[in-house]
Amino acid sequence: MIRTFLYTISVSLALLSAFSLQAQVKPASPAGDTIRLTKPAQDSTLRRQATPPRKQDSIAARKQARPTPPVTRLPDSVYYVPGGLRVGVDISRFALLYFQPYRTDVTFQADARINKKLYGAIEMGYNRTSHSDTSYTYKGNGMYATIGVDYDFLKKRDKDEKNMVFAGIRYGFARNSYEVPNYRIISDYWGSDITGSYPKTSMTAHWIELCMGIRVEALKNFFLGWGIREKIMLSSSADDAFPPIVIPGFGSGNKRSQFDMTYTVSYYFPLYKLKVSESREPRKKKD
């Protein structure tokens, strides 16, 4: 009987172990069921790459990818222009004898090319003034000089062209001496008759000139030119009570500014050549 009891317990334990193992195993899906697969999430980066680019973006990308062409600097253009000394006389001074017969003026002008557009200019002259009437007698003479620069505004078609359209500035200096050998003052009201003289006096003057004009080659190396000037007095040592009638190179002795015109005939001496170097604009190479 004890043996039968032990045998029963052993069978019961074996059955319990079998059920326990069966409960731990996951039951397999039936053969007829459809297996549902979950679609793996795609990377957002891959999705953006797969999206076709827009037209504007592709153009910008090509521009960025295209290499920038190098800028090539062209060599400077070097050539030579004629340089020399132009010497002339102002013939308008002789015309003054018709309007002011008491004065005689002689004026020489010269200019020399410094570079492509700039010219150095100088002028020298002489004045003699002689006047006599029933009231007084006046004598005066002196010399003057001006020095300055002219800038040529003319765009030349030929590098050998020497015509000019210019504007410039000058500094002028004059030294003059004058006297009144005798004068006579008659007053009918007072019934007086006064005579006398004013001794010889020397004076100096300084002024500036603003000028503009043209010079044209009428014949080979022969030039005609005219110009206008505004002269502004800087200082004068003349006595205000008795100024000179004429300041050489300036004009009236009792004015602080003077307008003047000139007309010159000159000859050009080709003495040298000037080297001109002009830089060219950089340009990009074509693809």
Rank of each mutant, 00 (worst) to 15 (best):
F108V: 11
T264D: 09
L46P: 01
S177R: 05
K117I: 03
S132G: 11
V149S: 14
D43E: 15
G84Y: 05
L274K: 10
S58Y: 04
L224N: 01
L274E: 05
S202W: 09
K63L: 10
F259Q: 10
Q49N: 08
M212W: 02
F108P: 02
S29L: 12
M203E: 11
V25A: 07
R256H: 06
S132D: 15
R256K: 14
E123H: 00
S277G: 04
D240C: 00
D193H: 06
T201M: 04
D188H: 13
G88M: 03
F153V: 14
V11Y: 03
Q100D: 11
F108S: 05
Y102P: 00
T264G: 02
S235Q: 07
Q56G: 05
I208A: 08
D111R: 03
Q42H: 08
D33E: 13
A61G: 07
V87L: 13
K231Y: 02
P52A: 13
S237F: 04
Y126W: 10
I91A: 12
D90M: 03
W226P: 00
S257D: 05
P243Y: 08
H206Y: 08
P53R: 06
P181M: 04
S187R: 06
L96M: 11
L210A: 15
K231H: 06
N182S: 12
V149N: 02
W226S: 09
D160H: 08
I247L: 03
Y126P: 02
W190H: 07
T107D: 12
L6T: 12
F99V: 12
Q24M: 15
D260S: 09
A41S: 09
K159H: 08
L21R: 04
W226Y: 10
S10V: 11
T201R: 05
P75N: 09
T104I: 14
D152E: 07
R66A: 14
M1W: 07
F99M: 05
R73C: 01
L74M: 12
A174H: 02
G83N: 01
Y79Q: 06
T68K: 07
T129K: 03
N141G: 06
K159D: 07
R128N: 08
Y102C: 03
R93G: 02
R3D: 09
S44K: 11
Y272F: 15
V106P: 00
S135K: 03
L118T: 13
T195Q: 11
D152M: 00
K284W: 13
G140P: 01
G148Q: 01
V81M: 00
V265P: 00
E217V: 01
W226N: 02
A31T: 15
T68N: 04
L97V: 10
N141I: 02
K284I: 13
T72S: 15
G83F: 00
A65K: 07
Y126F: 09
I147E: 07
I59G: 08
F19W: 10
S132Y: 06
S277C: 10
L234N: 01
V106Y: 15
L97T: 12
S29T: 09
R36G: 04
R229C: 04
M233W: 08
R175T: 14
F242T: 06
S192G: 06
I232W: 09
R170Q: 13
D90I: 04
M233F: 04
D239H: 03
V149K: 01
Q42E: 14
D158H: 07
D90R: 00
A65Y: 05
N182E: 13
G225S: 11
I247Y: 00
